[in-house]
Amino acid sequence: MEKESSKTKKDRMADRRARLRVQGFPFAMMTPFLIITSIFVVVPIIIMFILSFTDFNFSMKGSFIGLRNYRQIFGYPGMGQILLQTFLFVGVSVVFSVLGSIFIVIITTFYLDIIYKRKKLGLLFRVLWLVPDLTPTIVYMFMWKFVFGAENYGLINKFLAFFGLPSVAWFTDYAMFLLLFTTILKAASGSVILFSSAVSQIPENVIQSAKVDGASSLTICFKIVLSYLRWPIMQKTLWTILGSFCTYESIKLLTDGGPMAKTTTYAYYIYQNAYDFQEYGYGAALSVFMVIMSTALGMLMLRIFKIDKQMQDPRMDI
């Protein structure tokens, strides 16, 4: 107490300046991030909410129409089909991409690397399975168009014709299957690194002692490896749900949402309203639901992955 009062005015000023510097430093470091995020993320979110109450369109003019956009969404007869396809797309692609990725990682990292000690072979196949993820979407989708294309250029139809079988019109009859197939492969490829690093972090003595106890490699695989993969699987599942819910680029490039809107998902419907129909107000109202959905998923991630615990206090006060 005494010490405090004995400080001169000059000292107190210096104190305040020092405190300001300590408090100001983090914000100074974050300034570019805060500026970019507020202009290109926060402002667009606000614009989106405002637009959703207007009939803004390609003419860049519009007036407030209250809740009419929202009423239009619930009244749109095709919405049931779109939602059904969205759930189908998300569900199937999440399940199969995660399973496929686990399969690849167990064979390459667990069997080839750990059990058989063929590290180079394992790495070769892992890098091979990274290629779909590294390929730009436009090239990736063109490649599949090329493979499943009509008889004069499509690989599979050429193959069928070689055996005298009738050709299949993949893009009209099996559009959803194609979309799922390509998305699953790409998503599975995207999880390989994370899963593989989780598997390679299993301590060697854990596996060795299991082997000594007489466990077969299949038992080790199910009892030990999968338990180490629990968190990465959780993370990738959530991310793939989010990712496939928001997929529109692949749909645009592969099927254009067709035929007869059979591969139109919710995200692609938003894209159509933004780009093809240019109904900005209506599209913004659709986007509001998307934002709510993604925010809910983000909150779920906060809970599941205990983000707060990862924010340890810094061990320094200056």
């Binding site: 979110i45 998307m290 993604s294 991630m301």
Partner: peptide, 16 residues
Amino acid sequence: VLDAFPSVALLISFII
């Protein structure tokens, strides 16, 4: 939460 934010939802605002 922002990391989970889909770009498609902001497409229209981006245009404006």
